[in-house]
Design a binder for these strands. Structure first.
Length: 316
DNA sequence: GCTATGA
DNA sequence: TCATAGCAACGCAGG
DNA sequence: CCTGCG
């Protein structure tokens, strides 16, 4: 059977697709056609959260059961209408990051088998100043999702004491992400230091439940790893509504605190089920986007000298 | 999934 | 003509 | 210094 390439129109753009029957999620029977169809279905919800953010993709052309690879630089052959943003890394490397601002770009990423889409925490308008603080809650091998929820509620509580609001989403794997929408006022090092201190507070509240230690061997297997180090230039977490290359084709889904407290099963959010949920509950993440606040007062309360543009050593 | 490369 | 390599990245902590 | 980690 000859390889079939198809020219298709997507929202006014022309692109080529192929291998539409290739199974990307073995065991789930989900094909590349399903994947592209999903991306186009959720495009109205997804695109606003990707807009103007450099993307890092992980691609699985041979399916989620085979090795994938990261891609940052727009590959040769990228359609000319795909928007890119040239960036010079500290090491002087030039990277043309992909920006997704229209449905056709998502379809093209689907054709590229870019199963995971990871947007930066800052936009190209303020590349060095993030507009999210993120916490990645990862239950250890002997910990449960319910324990991750417990930790998320603690994070929420500490944020509330600082008059900040956190928004949770499932990670699409075993854990949770808590995102805090902030005004892009401070450079990454300040935000990282803020996150470090907040994580420290949470860890001290429940030392048996929470660990902030990076070395896997040193983490109690029954604790939840509270990772604040993803708050950095070029660091990313998987996008909201983004699928993962895991059995069941789970997606990272925003949830309400109420859903978490009621014990929602993160496994229910998949490529197959997410579109219906989006139709029913709408874009919960738009609420988060609408809630941006200054991080400055919270920094001050945690003893961070914001004016210096970088954290000062803790006065103790 | 696709291009650039070197044989 | 064909097979294959490349496709990110880097600071930070612990040892 | 090297290594593991995300």
């Amino acid at each position: 059977m000859a390889e079939e390439r198809l020219r298709v129109q997507v929202a006014g753009r022309e692109l080529e697709v192929s291998h539409l029957d290739r199974v990307l999620w073995p065991g789930d029977g989900l094909t590349k056609a399903d994947f592209i169809g999903y991306l186009l279905q959720v495009a109205p919800y997804l695109l606003p959260h990707l807009r103007d953010r450099p993307l890092v993709c992980t691609r699985y052309p041979d399916g989620a059961g085979a090795p994938g690879f990261y891609q940052k630089d727009a590959p040769a052959g990228t359609p000319p209408w795909v928007r890119t943003w040239p960036h010079r890394t500290r090491e002087g490397r030039r990277i043309r990051f992909i920006l997704a601002d229209e449905p056709a770009t998502l379809a093209w990423l689907g054709q590229q088998a870019a199963i995971e889409i990871h947007p930066w925490l800052s936009t190209i308008h303020h590349p060095h100043r993030p507009d999210w603080v993120v916490f990645d809650l990862d239950p250890g091998p002997r910990a449960t999702f319910a324990m991750a929820v417990e930790v998320a509620l603690l994070v929420r509580q500490v944020l509330a004491a600082l008059e900040l609001e956190g928004y949770p989403k499932t990670s699409g794997a075993t854990g949770l992400h808590v995102f805090v929408p902030i005004l892009p006022e401070h450079p990454y090092p300040v935000v990282t230091e803020f996150a470090r201190r907040l994580a420290g507070v949470v860890e001290r509240l429940r030392p048996a439940l929470v660990t902030t230690v990076r070395a896997v061997a040193q983490r109690p297997p029954s604790s939840v790893y509270l990772d604040f180090l993803q708050n950095g230039l070029g660091k990313t977490l998987v996008t909201v509504y983004g699928p993962r290359p895991r059995p069941g084709a789970p997606v990272s889904m925003p949830v309400t605190w109420d859903e978490l407290e009621r014990g929602v099963d993160p496994g229910t959010f998949t490529l197959r089920t997410a579109p219906a949920r989006l139709q029913q509950v709408g874009d919960l993440w738009a609420l988060a986007e609408a809630g941006r606040r200054s991080l400055t007062p919270a920094c001050r309360r945690l003893g961070l000298d914001v004016a210096a543009g970088r954290p000062l050593p803790s006065p103790v």
